[in-house]
């Protein structure tokens, strides 16, 4: 009888753990915490392809590549979106070849989306805009730690949308 109760207890515990893991994976409490405010963590990732503010990733990425003059090579991009309970969204774009992450603010039309990617004001290059420790941020409006940079990149590789852009002729 004791064994049966223990087995039942362990089964319930195992079921609970499996459920929690599934719940957390779907709703995102495995989201890396370091890139975000301790007091204000995102509640989940969201599917940028289903959001009208981010519905033109390909022309936006192409515009960024063209503006950088890197359209003569193969480029690899990744897009991952995070959201908060109050509706706030953050979409990070990793450009592998440039070792940069870009905060893509999207837009209510194609022109605005393209401009907000090509002319993104937050473009954080590893080593140039990253510091080793939080102390070194020292009030900056934009620096992040190296570990936060890598956390976004790794999370994007695992959970984001991947894009491979072949060389193309730019109109610029």
């Amino acid at each position: 009888m004791a064994f049966c109760l223990s087995f039942k207890k362990y089964s319930l515990l195992l079921s609970f753990l499996i459920f929690s893991l599934a719940f957390n994976t779907v709703f995102g409490s495995d989201i890396p915490s370091s890139p975000f405010s301790d007091e204000n963590q995102p509640t989940s990732r969201f599917d940028t392809s289903a959001n009208s503010y981010f519905s033109f990733p390909e022309p936006s990425i192409q515009a960024r590549i063209a503006r950088s003059g890197k359209n003569d090579q193969i480029n690899h991009f990744c897009i991952v979106g995070y959201q908060w309970g109050n509706g706030n969204m953050q979409v990070w774009v990793h450009w592998q070849e440039q070792k940069e992450i870009i905060l893509w603010q999207g837009g209510d039309d194609e022109e605005t989306q393209i401009a907000s990617m090509a002319l993104a004001r937050k473009e954080l290059v590893l080593g140039r805009d990253t510091v080793k420790s939080e102390e070194e941020i020292n009030g900056s409006s934009y620096l992040i730690t190296e570990s936060a940079w890598h956390d976004i990149v790794n999370d994007c590789a695992k959970n984001g949308r991947q894009f491979t852009i072949d060389p193309f002729v730019s109109n610029n």
């Binding site: 890139p35 975000f36 405010s37 301790d38 953050q90 020292n138 009030g139 992040i144």
Partner: peptide, 24 residues
Amino acid sequence: AWRTTGAASPGKNFVLFASKGGQD
């Protein structure tokens, strides 16, 4: 200080006050 809403703190000596217009 201000940072983009949701971004990590600007340092251990800073305390979040409020979000406004896309900034913390």
